Amino acid sequence: MGKNILVAHGGGPTAVINCSLQGVVEAARASGQVDKIYAARFGAEGILAGDLIDLTDVPASTISKLSRTPASAIGSCRRKLTDADFPTVLETLRKFEIDCFFYNGGNDSMDTCNKVDELARKEGLDLRVIGIPKTMDNDLDLTDHCPGFGSAARYAALSAAELALDASALPIHVVVLELMGRNAGWVTAASAMAGRLTDCQVLTYLPELPVDEDKMLADIERCYAKGKGLLVTVSEGIYGLDGEPLADTGIVDGFGHKVPGGTAQHVTDQIVQKLGLKSRAEKPGLLGRASIPYVSVPDREEAYAVGRFALESALKGESGSMVAIAAERAPVYQSSLFLAPLAEVANVEKKFPLEWIADGNGIGDAFFDYALPLMGGDFPEYALLRG
């Protein structure tokens, strides 16, 4: 008798999260060991409601489209499971006779995954639990990087370069670009690529360092005065010397995190009011994590691979682990997969290395050595005629 498997998505989707789902489904079908393939409709919410999608007989032609489909094809949520929820989780797992459970998500999702594994062991449930990494924030520990980051970084780099070209072509205002990253500045760091692709001045601020707003404004005024245009890129979660966010929506999400937002507008307002310069705020928001045209090919391929590896590992009897990526960058980029203990990954946040930040608002070469292979090649070479 074949095994029944369940896949769920947690947290904010990425441009490649469905590639991991495709990897799980296609590996399950190829194994000859899986009977039923279920997916939780809207993640943990679906598990609690017993609302599962049966993917067993979905045509292969439809499954193949997952790699070109943004967001989550099965639905996700930001529901943090509590102790009171777990009996219901067990009830659903038993009702559908689930043998293998895969949770595709970031830090909080890996914590949930770990708790499900611990509960199953305590209750004597024969369940294999494997976490599948996903986060554009790139802040999961023990893995070189996370599926979803490469594509979000590519989007940030190219969008910032396009804005930088516009800012330098009509240098009448300071352009401020806000990018996702509540506590980790990996994606915003990629926007500094604009300074390498264009002749525009670029300043970049990450949440790993507190921002001295007076110094920020002085640097903005100095760089703008060079007359080459100025792009300022900021993580949504940057905070001041007082430890408070520069901007705060006042909203708390389902995981208990404050929802940041409005940082670019705040900086823009300061530029206008205190420097007397024109400025405008730009914020791609969800486009930064869901854009298929900007998907990184290595990111797509690795997202698919971690899904397959998760399924294959569970069928070998592995449990209580997250699929992680090891990478070598010289002489050419290559990656491999391994299993990391969920208990060591859950709720551990990997921050951007401080030594990769130059002078508080620049990004050093070490980051680009790390990130460029993940972002994919073929960056454009622009015609820069003004000198």
Rank of each mutant, 00 (worst) to 15 (best):
K3H: 08
N4G: 01
V7F: 11
A27R: 11
A27Y: 04
G43P: 15
G43C: 08
I53T: 01
S61C: 12
P70H: 06
A73E: 04
A73L: 02
S76P: 06
C77A: 15
R78Q: 08
K80S: 10
L81H: 10
D85V: 03
D85F: 06
E91V: 09
K95G: 07
M110I: 06
N114L: 07
D117S: 14
K122T: 13
G124V: 09
L125D: 05
D126L: 10
M136Q: 03
D141C: 15
H145M: 07
D166V: 04
L170I: 15
P171A: 02
L177W: 13
R182A: 01
N183A: 00
N183I: 00
A189Y: 03
A190H: 01
A194D: 13
G195I: 12
C200Y: 02
D214E: 13
R222I: 12
A225C: 06
E244L: 15
H257P: 06
V259Y: 03
G261D: 11
I271S: 07
Q273K: 12
Q273A: 13
K274A: 12
P284H: 04
S291Y: 11
I292S: 10
V306I: 14
F309N: 14
M322I: 06
P331C: 15
V332G: 14
S335M: 05
F338C: 00
F338G: 01
P341L: 08
E349F: 00
L354Q: 10
W356L: 07
A358H: 07
G360Q: 02
I363E: 04
F367P: 11
Y370E: 13
M375Y: 05
G377T: 08
F379R: 07
P380K: 07
G387E: 13
